[in-house]
């Protein structure tokens, strides 16, 4: 196609978009809504993952050692445990460190400080905090630690108490992920079909015009290009509008989410601002692609005159 015809086709596309403004706006509104649904799902997923991670990081097993255990024995145990595949990290806190942090924590409380002084020796125990890769692994870890091999030095394993919480959390995690993937893909398919059908209906109302253009001697490309431009315009505007809505929505709800999770890190808004350009590009790119493909497929049908 020659440059002149190409620029004319683009002009027609823009002109038709404007002259059909109510139909265009209707199509646009539907596209914005569907895109919004998809983005919302994606963000809920991100948020859910983040929350779960947050919880998971808070879950751990603490092993307290008998005061008779030697530091060498404990270090050896730590080395062994670290080599297990389930283990993400271990942190050793010696008796002295435990005492220091205890004092630091309660330095405002004269009663506690006084009673601590009364004691002749350090009442706190050395401990090892163990974090696993996945919450469901804690049961195995706890069982291994409970074996006779370690009984001589371990005083207490602080896991039984958390066990039900950990179990429940890992269950919830799995369910949320499964439901998210299923509903996400169904909704995504629905959204794409709705956009496709809307654009197809828009073009369906103009099928006679396509026939006329052919009778006047227009080539298929010359007929199709304005419709594809229109489709791309729907995509462009829908993508930008949707991005705007998301931006303000995320900015508005982020602080509420922080409060809910009692955490300063949880960063949906951070995530959003850091990846601003990327999200915009994906949103708009996906929307334009959807618009162009829908127009292309829909016009092809009526071009077979």
């Amino acid at each position: 196609m020659k440059v002149r015809s190409f620029s004319r086709a683009i002009k027609f596309g823009l002109l038709d978009f404007g002259r059909n403004i109510w139909l265009s706006l209707g199509t646009l509104a539907i596209m914005v809504l569907t895109l919004f649904t998809i983005s919302l799902l994606v963000f809920l997923n991100i948020l859910g993952n983040e929350a779960i991670q947050e919880f998971q990081e808070k879950v751990s097993i603490s092993v307290y050692f008998k005061s008779t255990s030697k530091e060498g024995q404990i270090k050896k145990l730590e080395k062994e445990v670290s080599s297990w595949t389930q283990i993400k990290e271990t942190t050793y806190i010696s008796k002295e460190e435990a005492l220091l942090s205890f004092q630091e924590k309660h330095k405002e409380d004269p009663l506690i400080m006084a009673s601590l002084k009364e004691l002749e020796e350090n009442p706190l125990k050395a401990s090892l905090t163990i974090v696993a890769h996945f919450p469901e692994q804690y049961v195995q870890i706890a069982e291994r630690l409970e074996s006779k091999h370690y009984q001589s030095i371990i005083d207490e394993i602080n896991f039984r108490d958390n066990r039900s919480i950990i179990d429940r959390l890992s269950n919830i995690t799995r369910t949320i992920k499964r439901i998210g993937v299923i509903t996400g893909s169904i909704l995504c398919a629905v959204a794409i079909l709705v956009v496709f059908n809307t654009i197809r209906l828009t073009i369906y109302t103009q099928r006679k015009e396509i026939g006329i253009m052919k009778l006047v001697g227009a080539t298929n490309q010359f007929i199709q290009l304005p419709y594809i431009i229109e489709g791309a315009l729907y995509g462009l505007f829908a993508g930008v509008i949707n991005f705007g809505i998301l931006y303000y929505l995320v900015r508005y709800i982020s602080p509420k989410i922080y409060t809910f999770f009692e955490s300063q890190v949880s960063g949906l808004f951070n995530y959003f601002t850091v990846n601003l350009a990327l999200i915009l590009a994906i949103e708009v790119g996906f929307a334009i692609f959807l618009g162009i493909m829908s127009s292309f497929i829909a016009t092809r049908k009526y071009l077979k005159v």
């Binding site: 253009m213 006047v216 001697g217 227009a218 010359f222």
Partner: peptide
């Protein structure tokens, strides 16, 4: 004009 544009008329 459309009838002329289809044949890339200046």
């Amino acid at each position: 004009a459309y009838a002329l544009m289809v044949s890339d008329t200046p």
